[in-house]
């Protein structure tokens, strides 16, 4: 694509040379980061050319946007994110998820998978780099501003994190009561609809407390609560951990159903390779604080990388 652009634009410009240098400098293992950064550079060149065309002939100094902004159609994007606590957690992590994609982040324990989700939710701030959600850089938002952005997202926690002092109905209705003007009847209708979507019988579970539910049912209520506000983005932290194989299959199918029927963009953190391959349109492998692999499940199984093959085991 770059070559085609260049052939139409004439001899290489200073910007294009910089693009080539940037692309060459990218770690070839980090394929998605490479892609994201290349697209950014292309966007930057386009913006610079547009700027040039719009200027008069007086020779006003060229505006060179230092910050190219988010990728045009990305729902979630991390750009060169660095994060460290007592030790470095993420180094130069870039990836993007586009509408309707299910991106599964896999990796060994402690490699920063759940931390990545917290960055997307702006529960954490990166030391450097950008986190874009629906085109908005959320890294610089205040705590209160971030609360508004979070309403676009639904999060399903590893432990389901249902409020144990509230019934199932109150749990699912919580985001509706907090952020909408729906009346009680509308809220009940929405709660019933969401519980039915996750294959639960509303009249059976609505009045029960979370302590009275099985692990799989809690996860499903968690998903219903996450999607209650008709979230466009769903984030899942280990949705199938601690579940039996049958329930794991049910939850996996449910996540796929959300993508298929509602075109929800999902980011899933998982240890479960089998379900990751089933539900993921893309897989990102976090290792050594960086993205070691990014691609489709088919590309992942076809790779020759020794570490990835070991990670996949006998799959």
């Amino acid at each position: 694509m770059m070559d085609r652009d260049r052939s139409t634009a004439g001899p290489p410009t200073e910007d294009e040379e910089r693009v080539d240098e940037a692309v060459d400098a990218v770690d070839p293992r980090d394929r998605r980061a490479d892609d994201v950064i290349r697209r950014k550079q292309e966007q930057r060149v386009r913006t610079a050319i547009q700027d040039e065309l719009s200027q008069d002939d007086v020779g006003e100094e060229r505006r060179r946007p230092e910050d190219p902004g988010p990728l045009q159609d990305a729902v979630i994007e991390l750009e060169r994110v660095h994060l460290a606590f007592d030790r470095p957690i993420l180094e130069d992590v870039s990836f993007a998820a586009f509408p309707g994609e299910t991106l599964v982040i896999v990796g060994e324990s402690g490699t920063g998978k759940s931390t990545t989700l917290k960055l997307i939710l702006r529960l954490l701030q990166p030391d450097s780099g950008k986190v874009y959600v629906a085109g908005q850089d959320i890294a610089g938002l205040s705590f209160t501003e971030a609360l508004a952005v979070r309403q676009k997202m639904g999060m399903v926690f590893q432990s389901a994190a249902l409020f144990d002092s509230m019934t199932v109905f109150e749990n699912v209705a919580y985001p509706l009561r907090e952020h909408t003007d729906l009346d009680d009847d509308e809220i009940e209708a929405r709660v019933r609809e969401k519980l039915e979507f996750v294959d639960l019988d509303p009249s059976d579970v609505m009045d029960r407390l979370p302590a009275e539910l099985s692990g799989g049912m809690k996860k499903r209520v968690g998903i219903a609560r996450g999607m209650a506000n008709n979230a466009e983005i769903m984030l899942y932290d280990e949705p199938t951990s601690g579940l039996d194989p049958l329930t794991t299959g049910t939850i996996t199918r449910l996540i796929m159903k959300l993508q298929r029927e509602l075109n929800v963009t999902s980011i899933v953190v998982s240890h479960d390779i089998r379900s990751s391959f089933r539900m993921g349109t893309h897989i990102a492998l976090l290792a050594d604080r960086q993205i070691r692999f990014f691609g489709t499940p088919e590309e992942m199984t076809a790779t020759d990388d020794r570490y990835i093959r070991d990670f996949l085991g006998g799959f």
Partner: peptide, 14 residues
């Protein structure tokens, strides 16, 4: 420890 505080945050409640 059961992530309910994080859940409140993600549901847009301080």
């Amino acid at each position: 420890v059961t992530e309910q505080i994080d859940a409140l945050n993600t549901l847009g409640t301080d």
